[in-house]
Write a protein that binds this DNA or RNA. Structure first.
Lengths: 248, 248
DNA sequence: CGGGATATTGAGTTAGTTCAACACAGGTGG
DNA sequence: CCACCTGTGTTGAACTAACTCAATATCCCG
């Protein structure tokens, strides 16, 4: 079950603040954010956070847990657009007539920071630096999509697999979720298949090829990167780089 | 050859203002935009406007002409990320350490409005409504990428072809570039192939299948949509909707 | 009237799919 | 504790969508 519980973690103690990707925020800004935040949302694995075709008046920041963003076709074919990590922002990307154009599903238990969408304009008008931060976040997520489009459109199955594993691993490490070269991953091979635009069977065979080369290991929901340079070389991985704020 | 010519069209006479997608801008904002604009840039077909791996201190708005945004792999494989139309904004999306992560190439002669990147913060701090507009623009381009990712990852060749033709046609019509059901398109089948993640040969055969069904015609660089509903039905096209400003 | 870029077509190949069977693990209830 | 069940992973075989190669046709431009 999911539950909305108001204001649990004060923003001044936000667990994300330890991540280097977040710059120091001024006290005024912090106050605004605390005001902006309408509560926290805790979900179980498998919960649908946003649903394609429905409207949702909230924006979310992921405090902890995993999710993925996806779209489906009428006959059920599914494309995972990207995996979602702590620190990622949800809901800004896609609304037309307030209808979401994509869905988001939790992979683990999650804690989300909830913001009312209709106060977004307040943020823009009163705290341009925060607005600018949002733009940098959006810019980065567009970079990730560009990279993914290149991967899906033009890389071979084994390159795709390498890219997505590296991407997940590097982003997870950034979020402090990896233990050395190991990463506990709450996803199935079906998720990988849907992220890569491949069939489940071929995904399995491709993953096994990588394992036969002793580059990665995938065992009981744990991904282990055995040879990161070789994996990067096999897959031609380039990555999208960190979130950057070129100005201010 | 390309040339930078300062301040040709005053913003108050911007040709884009006739497009319904642009809201009315206040006189103060208009003044700021005129101040922000550092000049115009005119390019010939084939010119590279932005280059992956290089840095560029400018942002651009397309006043007229066509372009496409793409990425390449080391061995030359190319993925077109999207086609660029009048009214589209370039340069915001993708910079890491000021290095572009993608390239943009002109398809026709173009006129671009040039803005210095380092004044962007001025825009955020002084004109939040314009900043908000930028966010909506970015949000929309992310929607387009999501849709494209679904297309490339999960649709069949014929669906892909239908989607990309419809998408181009609809967006061009929005920009006032279509003549009835006809559209003069300065692209080759190689461009379509690179947008769809298909080989040139298979692109040609797929296009011919659509033509055999009398759904579209492609003759001497002109696309004609003969049966738009049927094309939408064949391709399962959903589109990404217009640019919307939900607030303010 | 060339000549280069673009489009078309056929033939053979291959990467990736679908189908189907089976293996394995964890979790539940008797 | 076992028997069962469901979700996940694995494997082989047959199939097909899409690819590559290569030859030819067509268009556009100078």
């Amino acid at each position: 079950m999911s539950a909305a519980v108001p204001r649990q973690t004060p923003c001044r103690k936000c667990p994300l603040k330890t991540l280097e990707i977040f710059r120091a925020v001024s006290p005024t800004e912090l106050n605004f954010i605390e005001e902006f935040k309408s509560g926290e949302f805790v979900t179980d694995p498998g919960a649908t956070i946003l649903m394609e075709g429905t409207s949702n008046p909230h924006l979310y920041t992921v405090l902890s847990g995993w999710a993925f963003r996806y779209k489906t076709l009428e006959d059920g074919r599914r494309q995972i657009l990207n995996f979602v990590f702590p620190g990622d922002f949800l809901g800004l990307q896609n609304s037309t007539f307030n209808e979401m154009q994509h869905s988001v599903e939790a992979l683990s238990q999650m804690v989300l920071c909830v913001f009312p969408r209709d106060k977004l304009w307040d943020l823009y008008s009163k705290h341009p630096a925060l607005a600018y931060d949002l733009t940098c976040l959006a810019s980065r997520s567009e970079r990730l999509l560009d990279e993914q489009l290149l991967t899906i459109g033009r890389r071979t199955a084994i390159e795709k697999m390498g890219c997505v594993l590296l991407d997940i691993f590097i982003r997870a490490r950034h979020a402090g979720l990896a233990t050395g070269s190991k990463l506990k991953l709450p996803i199935t091979q079906q998720h990988l298949a849907d992220a890569l635009g491949l069939s489940l069977v071929h995904t399995n065979k491709t993953l096994n090829k990588l394992m036969a080369q002793r580059v990665v290991r995938w065992k009981s929901s744990t991904l282990e990167i055995l040879d990161e340079p070789k994996l990067a070389q096999i897959s031609g991985y380039e990555g999208a780089g960190p979130i950057l704020r070129p100005l201010i």
